[in-house]
Amino acid sequence: MAGGNHSSVTEFVLVGFTNLQELLFGIFLLTYITTLVGNLGMIILIRTNSQLHVPMYFFLSHLSLMDICCSSSITPKFLSGLLVERNVISFNGCITQFYFFAVFGTTEAILLAVMAYDRYVAICEPLRYLVAMPHGVCVQLVVGCYAAGSLNALVHTSGLLRLSFCGPNLVNHFYCEMPPLLLLSCSDTWLNKTVMAVCVGFIITISVLAIVVSYSCILLAIWNIRSAEGRHKAFSTCTSHLMVVALFYGSAAFLYLHPFSRHAEDQGKTASVFYTMVTPMLNPFIYSLRNKEVRSTLRRATNRLLSCMYSH
């Protein structure tokens, strides 16, 4: 722990959702299982089928990995908390949870921008696609996403560790997140709020700008395609990504760029449900239902599995 921290608080109580806990446990347990099965299935499908060994699906497999990690850093503790009267987490445990969630969340945000660039190269420069996006470049881009996510998380975690928490220790949230934690600190949190607004604003602005520029070029390229079938095929590869981007960035922007206040905490919890649980669950279904290659590969894999089962 940082030397400037003189907290008397050794644990936090995560308030979460106080009503209908048994119903919420069932709903969120099903959501988490669906998230794990859907995203793990997507990773296995991509890794075991040579037809999907192209940059687009390489990035998609890492998006699925981020969804698993992001949800797993929060949901198990949240589910266990629904079964007890007081959902207690230690100070160090709270900081650790925040760090890993920040790593995975930031990495996913930047990865979505990288995926938009990948779509730009694939549609606007199809003849150069595999030359411009070799495996080595794809690996470097993904490593860069992880590095940026880790650096951003380290900055905010270090900022939290310099604060003092003298009580109360009731966190009006279902996991350890920056805005509700800052409201509990007895230190001056102006610097933390400023750094968070700058970092989050910068990441969202740069990522969204990269996505907007990429898709502006894509739309111009699609507009110049003469055949309706060609335009539909090109655009269909982008709609899944756009839907995921809208879900992710919409809820993230509301959560982090919303004014800090106790009145806004309940709204923040609702936005966080979409950001941490609903979006990771929906992502593999959005890609599998909207993507012809994934559907056909999944169909073949299912048929092989069924034939193996019947043969035994």
Rank of each mutant, 00 (worst) to 15 (best):
M1T: 14
M1L: 15
H6T: 10
T10V: 10
E11S: 14
F17T: 03
F17G: 07
T18M: 03
L20V: 13
Q21E: 12
Q21S: 12
E22Q: 08
L24G: 03
L24R: 13
I27G: 02
F28I: 02
L29P: 06
G38H: 08
L40A: 10
I43S: 01
R47I: 10
T48C: 14
N49W: 02
Q51V: 11
L52N: 06
V54I: 15
P55D: 05
F58E: 06
H62D: 01
L63I: 06
I68C: 09
C69S: 04
C69T: 13
S72P: 06
S73H: 01
I74T: 08
T75Q: 15
T75S: 09
F78N: 03
F78C: 08
L83Y: 11
E85Y: 07
N87M: 10
I89L: 13
F91S: 00
F91K: 06
N92V: 10
G93M: 09
T96D: 12
Q97P: 01
F100S: 05
F101R: 02
F101C: 04
A102L: 09
V103N: 09
F104K: 01
F104Q: 10
L111V: 08
L112Q: 06
A113H: 08
A122Q: 03
I123G: 00
L127A: 15
V137L: 14
C138F: 00
V142R: 07
Y146W: 15
G149P: 07
S150L: 15
S150T: 09
L151D: 02
T157V: 05
L160F: 11
L161K: 11
R162L: 14
R162D: 15
F165R: 01
C166F: 04
G167H: 02
L170R: 09
L170N: 04
L170K: 11
V171Y: 00
V171D: 07
H173M: 11
Y175H: 12
M178T: 12
M178A: 07
L182A: 02
L183K: 08
L184H: 05
S185M: 00
S187N: 04
D188R: 08
D188A: 13
K193F: 05
V195E: 00
C199Q: 13
F202I: 09
I211E: 05
S214L: 02
Y215E: 07
I218F: 00
I218H: 00
L220N: 08
I222F: 02
I225S: 02
R226K: 13
A228R: 15
E229W: 00
E229F: 00
E229M: 09
G230N: 04
F235W: 15
M243N: 09
L247A: 03
L247S: 01
A252P: 13
A253Q: 14
A253Y: 00
L255W: 06
Y256D: 11
P259A: 08
R262N: 12
H263I: 03
D266G: 05
G268C: 09
A271Q: 13
S272M: 15
L282C: 07
N283F: 15
N283P: 01
P284D: 06
P284Y: 14
P284E: 15
I286Q: 04
Y287I: 04
R290M: 09
S296G: 03
R300D: 10
T302G: 05
N303V: 15
L305M: 15
S307H: 14
C308R: 14
S311K: 10
H312C: 11
